[in-house]
Nucleic acid binder design. Sequence first.
DNA 1: AAATTCCTTCGTAAAACAACGAACAATAAA
DNA 2: TTTATTGTTCGTTGTTTTACGAAGGAATTT
Lengths: 115, 115
Amino acid sequence: MTSTTKKYTERQEQIATFANALGHPVRVAILELLASQSCCYHGDLSDELPIANSTLSQHLKVLKDAGLIQGEINPPKTKYCINRQNYAVASEIFASFFANSLDTEFTKDGILLCS
Amino acid sequence: MTSTTKKYTERQEQIATFANALGHPVRVAILELLASQSCCYHGDLSDELPIANSTLSQHLKVLKDAGLIQGEINPPKTKYCINRQNYAVASEIFASFFANSLDTEFTKDGILLCS
DNA sequence: AAATTCCTTCGTAAAACAACGAACAATAAA
DNA sequence: TTTATTGTTCGTTGTTTTACGAAGGAATTT
């Protein structure tokens, strides 16, 4: 392939970005905590997670940069919550990604290729 | 939190593993190619992707280690295809992950917390 | 004003990732 | 047997990630 192309589609980049954010177990745990409690202070999360405070801040930044959470800073406390809008986007994009892939299983006239 | 705990659940680890594999746009592209064509030789993928052959091998290894694809080596050719079984697992685990999270939006008596 | 609480940022070190070309199998073709 | 073809593995380089403690900022409490 030539190098003049724009490498990857926006969608592929978007999927990778969301996936990357989910690509560490502690970030999955963070999202689950936020989802179950709607909101949490940094300290609440820190109590539940086996990582240093500064490390937690880093992971929260990753999630925020990916758009999956948002933080309301209110010194000295900071409240985090899920960004539901982007969460829905992520949910859909993953669903469609897997749906498209699995579809092909059925669009090949029942022939299971690549045994 | 004490350090005696087993850090993360199997499920959290599993999600992170799958997500990690999806965490690079070229790997998303690879999966899409495999999904649309059912199977591909390494060379077919190489023609479509803007990376060196050796790099492609690395990415394929990541996807294989995560269980998302499988490779049938038949020198000098190698045929790759999606591991549909694990793919279905991944699809479900992501779906349930997002479903659980978004559910809370409705289980809070319509009160949108954390504006 | 000093001390405390809460969290972020900084500095740093170790590990993992991503990319490439070169070298290396393993078969097929000449 | 030599040459090609096809991929993987190796070695290397540079970047990113993950982790921590220390230091810093911002309000609140003492």
